[in-house]
Design a protein around this nucleic acid. Structure first.
Lengths: 146, 146
DNA sequence: CTAGGTGCAAACGATTTGCATGCTA
DNA sequence: TAGCATGCAAATCGTTTGCACCTAG
């Protein structure tokens, strides 16, 4: 009942469902996230720059469209911040990592929690949702800003 | 160590700290949230309309400035969505309410969880943050969109 | 072939900011 | 008074979209 993160193989399969196509641009974005591994937050602009560093040109518009697609497929998870969205791998190893954000300076720390993972699972069961992932955002004021 | 939500009284006190002033505009916004009670999400525009319905004129710019202030003071909690931020009372009764969001249609359900609350507390302690609040966002696909 | 994808540039829309004026403490 | 707050309008800036062209299947 829960749609789960896929391996490279089944993900490419997913990109062929419903008449979707696996283009070089999409492959580049996928490979970027895979090469960076989990636990890294990238904005759309970050993805753009990382790709340019690798001499790969993909338009920002396509990056936005692809990131949205990957979120809906459950491959990425989106973290909304005051400066726009951040995306990160949502695979089994990282689905349990959460965020502690300073509301003053935006500093972000990460932590893990088994209980939070379970709470999300229970909630999605209760309402009949297919779980994609969950993320806890804890807001506070960091020591430097206090 | 944890900055906690305040009652009306200590909140108005908070609005006098650091040379801040309690203006009619701020009072109107505060009273709006208090009158609606917890568990309601309002965007900045929503606040604007609600106030107009009550024949109270406050500029959108001031609403944005005040909402940010109230979030930093811990009186409101901010929920970032793809259509902008939503704000709600962050008082003791509602600080433990979380969100289950459909990534396709945006439908949002709410639920509570004691474990999540504790996880946030532990995390903020670990990094020395003053806790303001926490919110879990669970992403999934709702039954209608599946 | 042909629907889906891409790039570009323009459009959008929520939020922020500069500045002159108002008003709290 | 002094200085924070407000209102207005203009500026920002991340994100979306229209459209003509391209290409995976």
């Amino acid at each position: 009942m829960s749609m789960h993160p896929e391996t490279g193989g089944s993900l490419q399969q997913g990109l062929h469902q419903d008449g979707r196509r696996l283009t070089p641009q999409r492959r580049r974005i996928l490979e970027l996230f895979e090469s960076l591994g989990g636990g890294r937050h990238l904005s759309a602009e970050d993805v753009h720059h990382q790709l340019l560093d690798r001499e790969l040109r993909v338009s920002l518009a396509t990056i936005y469209r692809t990131l949205r697609l990957l979120v809906e497929m459950g491959f990425l998870q989106e973290l909304q911040t005051s400066n726009g969205s951040q995306f990160e791998l949502a695979d089994a190893e990282h689905i349990r990592h959460h965020h502690l954000v300073c509301v003053r300076c935006g500093r972000t720390e990460e932590f893990e929690s088994e209980e939070v993972l379970n709470a999300g699972l229970q909630a999605s069961n209760k309402f009949g949702f297919d779980l994609i992932g969950s993320s806890l955002t804890v807001r506070g004021i960091c020591p430097q800003c206090r």
